[in-house]
Simulated scan of single mutants.
Amino acid sequence: MPYNKDKQQSFQAAQQGATQAFDVYENIVKDRADYGSQLKHLKEEVNEAYQQITNALENSSETQRQRLEQYQSDLQRIVSEVNQTE
C-alpha cells in the first residue's frame, strides 16, 4: 500500500503544480509594469511543475501517465506562447 500512496501523492503534487502554473499564466497582464516579474514567476512555476511531473511519471499508472503527459503538453504550449510574445 505505501507504493500506491506514494504514487497518488506524486501525481497530486504534479497536478497541483501544473494547476498553479496554469493559474499564473492566466493571470498575467501584459500591460502592467511588473510584467517582467510576472514572467519570472511563471517560469518558476512551470519549472517546478515540470519537475513534479517528471517525478510522478516514474511511478504513475497508465491513466495518470496520460494525464501527466497532457500537463506536459499544456505547459509546453504556454512556454511557446510566452516565447512568441517576447
Rank of each mutant, 00 (worst) to 15 (best):
E45M: 03
E48K: 10
E62F: 09
G36F: 12
S60E: 04
Q76P: 08
L57S: 07
N4W: 14
A56V: 00
K43F: 06
Q72T: 11
Y71A: 00
Q66E: 15
L42H: 02
R65N: 12
Y35F: 15
L42P: 01
Q84M: 13
Y25L: 02
D6Y: 13
Q38P: 05
D6N: 09
S73A: 11
A33M: 12
Y35D: 09
E81I: 12
V24G: 00
N83S: 09
I28D: 03
K40L: 13
Q20C: 03
S73V: 09
A49E: 01
L39Y: 06
A21L: 00
F11I: 00
Q16D: 13
F11A: 04
N59R: 10
I53A: 01
Y25S: 05
K7D: 03
A18C: 07
E69G: 08
M1Q: 06
Y50S: 06
R77H: 10
D6H: 11
L42E: 01
I28L: 05
N59K: 13
K7V: 08
Q8L: 05
S61D: 14
L57W: 05
Y3R: 14
Q66K: 15
D31S: 15
Q51Y: 06
Y50G: 05
Y50F: 07
I28F: 04
E69N: 15
Q8M: 07
A21C: 04
Y35S: 10
T85K: 11
A49C: 07
A13W: 01
N4E: 15
T54G: 07
A18R: 03
L42K: 03
S73C: 06
T54P: 01
Y71F: 13
Q15V: 03
K43N: 08
S37L: 12
L42F: 05
D34L: 05
K43P: 00
S37Q: 12
N27M: 04
S37K: 10
S80C: 06
S60W: 02
V24F: 01
R67N: 13
A56S: 07
A56T: 01
I78G: 04
T63H: 10
E81Q: 14
Q20K: 09
A33Q: 12
P2G: 09
A13Y: 01
V46G: 00
Q38H: 06
L57E: 09
N59L: 09
S60A: 15
F11C: 02
G17S: 04
T19Y: 10
Q70G: 07
Y35N: 11
N83C: 06
K7W: 05
Y35R: 11
E69K: 13
N27A: 05
I28W: 04
K30L: 09
E48F: 08
Q38L: 06
T85D: 14
R77V: 15
K7R: 15
A56E: 02
S37P: 04
Q9T: 10
R67V: 14
L75C: 08
F11P: 01
S10I: 03
Q12S: 10
L42M: 07
L75K: 02
N59P: 08
H41G: 08
N83Q: 10
R65F: 06
N55E: 12
E69P: 04
S73W: 07
K40M: 13
A56I: 02
I78H: 04
K7L: 07
D6Q: 09
R77Y: 11
S61V: 12
G36I: 13
Q72P: 06
Q15A: 01
E48A: 11
A21T: 02
